[in-house]
Design a protein around this nucleic acid. Structure first.
Lengths: 258, 258
DNA sequence: CTTCATTACCGTACCCCCTACGGAAAGTGT
DNA sequence: ACACTTTCCGTAGGGGGTACGGTAATGAAG
């Protein structure tokens, strides 16, 4: 079978390479894409942990060890799943309009994939799989930022800032979805259940700011709404600040949304 | 032994409650604090996965199942570890100075605990353990924001925004530490290893913005430096934006740092 | 001092996971 | 029919979490 010597890149970029087209030997029953797609399907429905080697193999009606002929090990399978999902976004061709609406489209798309594949929230951001999907993602953000005319040294910084904010919010939402599935209660259910016990242990004396804000009605919105508010505030501040740092503002006036 | 009926709050708040002081029966060899402290110690040194029930028990020279007399199950142990660590910060009494320096102190402190306990990056942000440590954390941020005089409806939103940005950056850094430990290579090592293969698979045509930025020297800084730059840019923009939204600016002029 | 009630300790067993190894199986070409 | 190549996968070994039920250690009562 294929010899993976610690390298996952040929697998990530397998579609850029002509298939080896073997003539001899026992024909394979599956393709890598079958394995990756099944992993994604199981993870979508039952979470990342459920997408075990044994489970994916069973789903494909194949022995567990057969998968190791397609993929070096489970971590690599997960990398392939991540890149596959990132590559499934319809970001290209670049959205028309100014940079802001392009970023907003990116944000929408990011939230969408995290909602469809909430297990993404449990994969590492550092050292992502360097495959076509992930690069297309970066390219889109960089293209949007580049149109601003920022100094070169700031372009990637600004892109990382915006992407990190959006991904963080999407991950938080996805984490909430996972927890709702796992526990059967929503975030708001959960917080209000604890609310009952606040009376019992919460020490008013040592939490004056929190108490004051509570009494002033500063906690009336639900947890999910608060998270949304924070996301939108942060995004607005970051976009405004970056736009203000650019020499030539193409859009004048304040942003019409909100 | 103690009967946990699905409730972890009494464990989190155990220090606010007088010990039951049993007179009869076999005396316990351990305390919950022993178990939690050992869990933290193991996780600090070898990662969250290493802090298994079996391992923590061995460390305490006790049978695995003995731990279940102190803690309902492993997830609860981890919650207790998280709250313990959050509570170990020296945030109180509130730092002197304006709100900005208070937030910067919070940020420093957050980075410190994530560096000392990088496994925190692998614990959920949504639905954190509602214990004394986590509440003290929130209280500090709310107190700092409150001094700004923002409209009530915006206080918690601003606090969440800032806390989320800081925690996200601290988590990213911590994730890097975990990966360095696990793989033995730094982030920059890792990226430069991949760099060799860019020539092989990267398609210049479909990544014009990235290619242009590369040629302009926009990727000369290392991955960790880029992440730091992005963190600092984001923090500055968020703080500036929030300050600008407050009616009474106590500090006038631009911020002296940078 | 014995016995009992109470509490804590923990060995065993079951189920699930990942994966190294090596032999069996299923094709092609001769 | 045979060799050759490639794929399939059973077995086994090392982890992990935790339910169950028996055993050990104490204070109190007799």
């Amino acid at each position: 079978m294929t010899d993976f010597t610690g390298r996952i890149l040929p697998l990530l970029w397998r579609r850029s390479i002509p298939a080896p087209d073997r003539k001899t030997g026992r024909p394979a029953r599956l393709t890598i894409d079958d394995v990756v797609a099944t992993g994604i399907r199981v993870a979508d429905r039952e979470g990342l942990d459920a997408a075990s080697m044994a489970r994916v193999a069973t789903e494909l009606a194949v022995g567990t060890m057969t998968l190791y002929g397609y993929v070096p090990s489970r971590p690599e399978l997960i990398d392939l799943m991540v890149d596959e999902v990132l590559g499934s976004r319809d970001l290209l061709p670049p959205a028309p309009g100014d940079w802001r609406s392009r970023i907003l489209r990116y944000a929408e798309s990011t939230f969408t994939i995290y909602r469809e594949h909430p297990w993404l929230a449990r994969t590492s951001q550092q050292r992502p799989p360097i495959g076509p999907g992930m690069l297309a993602d970066r390219e889109y953000v960089l293209a949007a930022i580049s149109s601003l005319g920022l100094p070169t040294s700031m372009v990637n910084t600004a892109a990382l800032t915006i992407a990190a904010w959006i991904a963080g919010a999407a991950r938080n939402e996805a984490e909430g979805i996972l927890l709702r599935r796992a526990t059967g209660e929503t975030n708001d259910d959960w917080w209000s259940q604890r609310g009952e016990l606040w009376e019992k242990w919460f020490d008013v004396e040592s939490h004056p700011a929190m108490t004051a804000l509570w009494n002033a009605g500063g906690f009336t919105r639900g947890a999910d709404e608060q998270a949304r508010d924070a996301y939108e505030l942060g995004l607005k501040l970051l976009l405004d600040g970056i736009e203000a740092a650019s020499p030539a503002q193409q859009t004048s006036g304040t942003d019409p949304r909100r």
